[in-house]
């Protein structure tokens, strides 16, 4: 149990997917301009990431490893993610119009979000048990959402700042992310490292 809590906290704050593993940078730079879209994207990613990690774990250990098919790992993972996104999209569209309105446009973008595949791969590298993997996926999504929302808040304020022209747009966003990463380094003492 302690182990699970440790994974939960460290994945959100210390080993944050965006700020320390550089996963999901594209959506991080792309949709962090507005608070509303940041929230939508964050929720969609958390949802898909939790599911994708669980299913990838089951397939990896119950099918691929048992039958000696580990060389298919990457192809299988990416197919799991792509089909999962498709199924989730169809499911939401049918059963919850509200949820579809808020998450719908972000779902197709998720397939190419490296954070999802990244979490599945790191889960294998870190040799997690099933429960640990599920927590890892869920907290990874939460950590991603947290940084995305914080970033959106900062960027909404920065719109009114008077900055040199060459720094407008991407450079400023990257440097802000750098400073944010420095701040998050402050968490690294939590939970005994």
């Amino acid at each position: 149990m302690e182990n699970l809590i440790l994974i939960f906290i460290s994945t959100i704050l210390i080993n944050n997917l965006v700020l320390s593993y550089f996963l999901g940078i594209c959506p991080f730079l792309g949709v962090s301009g507005k608070m509303e879209s940041a929230l939508g994207m964050g929720m969609a990613v958390t949802f898909v990431m939790t599911l994708a990690t669980s299913i990838s774990w089951l397939i990896y250990y119950l099918v691929l490893e048992r039958f000696g098919l580990l060389f298919l790992e990457y192809i299988v993972f990416i197919l799991v993610i792509a089909s999962l996104v498709q199924i989730v999209e169809m499911f939401i569209r049918k059963y919850s119009a509200n949820l579809y309105q808020s998450l719908g446009i972000y779902l197709p973008l998720i397939t190419s979000n490296c954070a999802i595949l990244g979490v599945a791969l790191f889960m294998v590298v870190k040799d997690y048990s099933f429960l640990e993997a599920v927590i890892f996926g869920f907290s990874g999504g939460l950590g991603f959402s947290l940084v995305l929302v914080v970033m959106a808040g900062i960027r909404e304020e920065l719109k009114f700042a008077d900055i040199p022209k060459v720094f407008k747009g991407a450079p400023l966003t990257l440097i802000t992310a750098g400073i944010l990463a420095l701040i998050f380094m402050g968490f690294s003492g939590l939970g005994g490292g």
Binding site: L19, S20, F22, K165, V166, F167, A170, P171, L172, T173, L174, I175, A177, G178, I179, A181, L182, M185
Partner: peptide
């Protein structure tokens, strides 16, 4: 040491992109 840490990656890339914009200008 910060340059090898994640934060340094963002900072260096940010300044490089700004430099590229300057050259284009």
């Amino acid at each position: 040491v910060v340059m090898i840490l994640p934060a340094g990656a963002f900072l260096v890339l940010g300044f490089l992109v700004a430099l590229m914009n300057r050259v284009e200008q």
